[in-house]
Design a binder for these strands. Structure first.
Lengths: 275, 275
DNA sequence: ACATTTATCTCATAGAATGAGAGAGGTTCT
DNA sequence: AGAACCTCTCTCATTCTATGAGATAAATGT
């Protein structure tokens, strides 16, 4: 059988586990079916990552596209309610919420996790969350508050780093190749206390998490916060598909309470059965 | 100056207030910049509206596209994490949640409404929600629970009809042309009790809501539910841009309580100042 | 086991997407 | 104020991309 290159070969290297995301950094201009669609998604991602409205040139610049092209794309997206524009400012549009709703209601992972998170939050009194990795980040995908809720809000849909806090539980399962990509992308790493994290320390952290099967993080992503995380594995492949985390203000949790929490979280994570 | 037809002329008839949405019904094949992007959005909308995973032919059929085209689009979307596929089943993908998050955090309307909903929920003890119209539907865009919360969940991102319950508050502001489009699209209307609603009754309902400046709905969209709604108007144009609603199980609210509630809701709705 | 439906992939061709460019409207200097 | 600059908007000729028929392979139903 002759070797041929198929559409899927490019954007799906290692299934959904590829880390690319920001193409500009690695500058790999891979051939693509549907350039215009890829570009439209680039534009959308710019708007999604910006916490504020942006102007045309700004979007074009960040997406690395010609202004005319960007404008045309934004025009179509606006006509479809996926972008909103007042004056010269573009923002994400209402219709984007339907996609999130569809994901949250159809994802088997989310469905399987909900009751588990519920019980975990009840038993520990802390906020229980489910994270999923996408590219070099993670997303909050489900969350149940306990009786001692967090002081700060971490809403569903928040995009968080892979290299801090519970993110490391997801990063721990990356292959050596993917891990290098991640390190390249994030550049110099430092935690919420300002401490620099060397690649060596980072790698050994991941190694430890992999061995232990759970993770305790203090003041990593957010000062004054404590989290305990464990990986959710695919029943079939054994690959890490998500992480379950309980989070709290660090003064709400006594040190001798932590061991019990790790047991709870590990049990919850393994209780999630996902195809 | 010569008359020319511009991109915006087609997909933005009456700003974002057009009702099209489903092109197939009216079968108006308008010229479009970026056909492939339009089609990709069609595919996404199919996935967003389906409450369950779909197969390729099914998606192609619903979107009115060739199977090959549909597959190519799905492939790109999957590579970008906006669609997920297990086996032959396609679903909405994780990355769609970032768009929703961006909308919810950058929309001035949502930001302006949050404190108002908060206070309304506190004062009435009921669940206060903000709805926005998109096409022939409305979306739940913000929500605060009171001390007497609803029994059923109505999550953010839910897509609801315009012709039932609080939807009529939004429909009341439609122009005659748009209203006709809406009636064409939804076809025969009936409420949660199974009662048929004739176009005449519907129009007079809207007229009443427009006059009163609020609406009380009982058992319309959901049996056993009661809602009180009022329109949020643009400070500049005066157009209805959203609706504020309080909802409750009907047995939680005594009849003589309702008048007070309408006053609260109207006050809340007019307290939202949106550019 | 056979028939039918569905998915995947290739390829020549139509025509859609592209970006340079010009014009108009703002903004920020001196 | 005037000039220089920047940004937005729109048009149009050219190019290269998106398209769908069709062949093949896989899955599904009877």
């Amino acid at each position: 059988m002759p070797f041929t290159v198929n559409a899927g070969d490019f954007y799906c290297w290692t299934e959904q586990t590829d880390l690319r995301g920001k193409k500009k950094m690695t500058e790999q201009k891979e051939p693509t079916t549907m350039r215009s669609l890829e570009r439209a998604i680039d534009v959308l991602e710019v708007l999604e990552d910006a916490a504020r409205p942006l102007r045309l040139v700004d979007i074009a610049g960040r997406a690395g596209l010609h202004v005319a092209t960007t404008q045309r794309i934004l025009g179509v997206l606006e006509g479809r309610g996926r972008v909103e524009k007042d004056g010269m400012n573009y923002r994400a549009g209402v219709n984007l919420i339907f996609g999130a709703h569809a994901y949250l209601t159809t994802s088997p992972l989310v469905a399987a996790s909900r009751p588990v998170l519920q019980e975990l939050a009840e038993r520990t009194g802390l906020t229980a969350s489910l994270f999923v990795r996408t590219g070099a980040h993670r997303a909050v995908v489900a969350r149940v508050h306990g009786s001692r809720p967090l002081r700060y809000e971490l809403p569903i849909g928040a995009k968080l780093p892979l290299h801090l806090g519970a993110g490391k539980t997801l990063a721990a399962d990356l292959g050596p190749e993917e891990l290098r990509h991640l390190l390249d992308q994030v550049g110099p790493m430092r935690d919420a206390e300002g401490r620099e994290i060397s690649p060596e320390i980072f790698r050994s952290d991941l190694e430890k998490i992999r061995k232990q099967g759970f993770q305790v993080a203090l003041n990593e992503r957010k000062l004054g916060s404590l989290s305990v995380s464990a990986p959710v594995r695919s029943t079939q492949s054994g690959a890490v598909v998500a992480a379950i985390t309980i989070g709290a203000a660090s003064e709400d949790v006594s040190p001798d309470e932590i061991e019990g929490l790790t047991i709870e979280v590990r049990r919850a994570a393994s209780a999630v059965t996902v195809p």
